[in-house]
Design a protein around this nucleic acid. Structure first.
Length: 437
RNA sequence: GGGCUCGUAGUGAAGAGGCCUAUCACGCCUCCCUGUCACGGAGGAGAUCGCCGGUUCGAAUCCGGUCGGGCCCGCCA
């Protein structure tokens, strides 16, 4: 029966059977060490029999092996145990030399990202590279845990849509049996509709943006966490929920993957002591940034990327928080479904920033049917259009006040680990130039 | 859409008019090596310097074009 790499130490003195990939050979003459990789990690196998070593001649890293040997306690071996007197069985011989090395840290330099993704199939076998996606899995699991605890229902909504109706971003169009379909830029309409059923819903799914943005923070296919929560009494309540969730997920992952994050050189996690993510209005940030940097940004409707980096720096140094909210975005920057604070003349929409980057937009929605029609008409949209019909039904037949967020999972993973490009946090990234692998 | 950059063995880099018959590291091949873990040692193979054209006695190096990357801005998650 097959045992796994981390179980070898529990079978000292016994004959055991392991299977995995040849990960490394070290030939010292009369003594040969090989590392066998399985899903738990590496097992060191010691070979002294020349005939056994000969079985590996001409075979490359990646060869699939079975090894029968006796487990020994050995302080000199990684993990404190190893296999001796081993017999090898080659299950899948690999003679082709891998185009990249997988037993050493993989280059993540911006100039070489193309090579990283060109050989993704192989470099994902690198133990260091694997940590990134284990951490990614843990982050989304922690988010699901939090949302489940707070009575959110997980939903799945279609990605083929009839029309590009939401606005704000370029959409992909494709032939759908003679009609034109678009790929969803977000589950926006569906999650709001579902508030009418469950009050609280979320989806972790893919969204598609056809924007020709070749930057370190854009993908054409991205993973978004979309949350919507009904019967909220204030914008603050939504911000608190999203802030709590993010802190929960980060704490969980920093605890569970402490060693992995350290070996990946992730920054130390700084979260506010009182658990409340600090808030600044967009106008405040413009003012603070302009004063500190001598560049006048007070006329900008949105934050410029450098302001996002600056306010995050400020929050980390002065307030001990890697997370910070930019609130009260101006009405000119808003979408038709955002709720407007008429008294202040701003929207009830904020962005959650994390280590210099916008990772979520957190707005309160307009939920009044007549006001929606009014705001849509003002935005130049045809409210009688087929694409809006079912969305507006939800409002016509009763939606409570609600709010939520669109949260970029790829960006969250990138910044959690301290990577330089959102694509490094994505297994098989899709961008303006890349469709494969 | 605009701007700025970079293309040299399988991988990562050095070379910035002649010292280049192109250097180094890792990987690969052969041999030596009984405690390696980025093993070590000796030797070897592997590159028409992205492509096309130009300038020059001479181009990896300078110029133009082209193709392919990257970064920033706009926009967004």
């Amino acid at each position: 029966m097959r045992i796994l790499s981390n179980e070898v130490k529990d079978h000292v003195g016994q004959e055991v059977h392991i299977e995995g990939w040849l990960h490394k050979k070290r030939l010292l003459g009369g003594l040969t060490f090989i590392n066998v990789r399985d899903r738990r990690g590496l097992t060191q196998v010691v070979l002294q029999d020349k005939d056994e070593v000969e079985k590996l001649r001409g075979l490359q890293i990646g060869t699939v092996l079975a090894v029968d040997g006796v487990a020994h306690e050995e302080p000199r071996a990684p993990g404190g145990a190893e296999l001796k007197d081993a017999k090898l069985t080659v299950l899948v011989p690999v003679e082709a030399e891998p185009p990249i090395e997988i037993d050493k840290p993989i280059q993540h330099k911006a100039d070489n990202l193309d090579t990283l993704f060109e050989y993704r199939v192989l470099n994902i076998r690198n133990l260091q590279e694997q940590k990134i996606f284990k951490i990614r899995g843990s982050l989304t699991r922690a988010i699901r845990e939090f949302l489940d605890q707070h009575e959110f229902v997980e939903i799945d909504t279609p990605k083929f849509l009839a029309e590009p109706t939401e606005g704000g971003a370029e959409v992909f169009k494709l032939d759908y049996f003679g009609k034109t379909a678009t790929l969803a830029q977000s589950p926006q309409f569906f999650k709001q509709i579902m508030v009418g059923a469950y009050e609280r819903v979320y989806e972790i799914g893919h969204s598609y943006r056809a924007e020709p943005s070749a930057t370190s923070r854009h993908l054409t296919e991205l993973t978004m966490l979309d949350i919507e929560m009904g019967f909220v009494t204030s914008h603050d309540e939504v911000m608190d929920m999203v802030g709590d969730m993010t802190q929960y997920a980060l704490r969980q992952v920093y605890e569970k993957h402490a060693d992995d994050l350290k070996s990946l050189n992730a920054p130390e996690l700084k979260l506010p002591e009182d658990g409340k993510v600090p808030r600044f209005t967009v106008a405040q940030i413009h003012e603070m940034y302009s004063k500190a940097n001598g560049q006048d940004t007070t006329k900008e409707k949105d934050l410029i990327p450098d302001e996002e980096r600056w306010i995050c720096d400020y929050a980390r140094k002065e307030l001990g928080s890697d997370l910070v909210y930019a609130t009260e975005f101006p009405i000119e920057a808003a979408k038709f479904y955002h709720k407007v604070d008429a008294e202040k003349g701003v929207t009830m929409w904020s962005d959650l920033l994390f280590r210099g980057l916008e990772i979520a937009t957190v707005p309160l929605r307009e939920n009044n049917y007549e006001k929606m029609i009014e705001q849509m008409t003002k935005a130049g949209l045809d409210v009688s259009h087929e694409g809006f019909k079912h969305y507006l039904q939800a409002f016509k037949y009763g939606l409570p006040q609600h709010g939520g967020c669109g949260f970029g999972i790829d960006r969250l993973v990138e910044k959690t680990i301290g990577l330089g490009n959102v694509k490094e946090a994505t297994l098989f990234p899709r961008d303006i130039n890349r469709l494969a692998p």
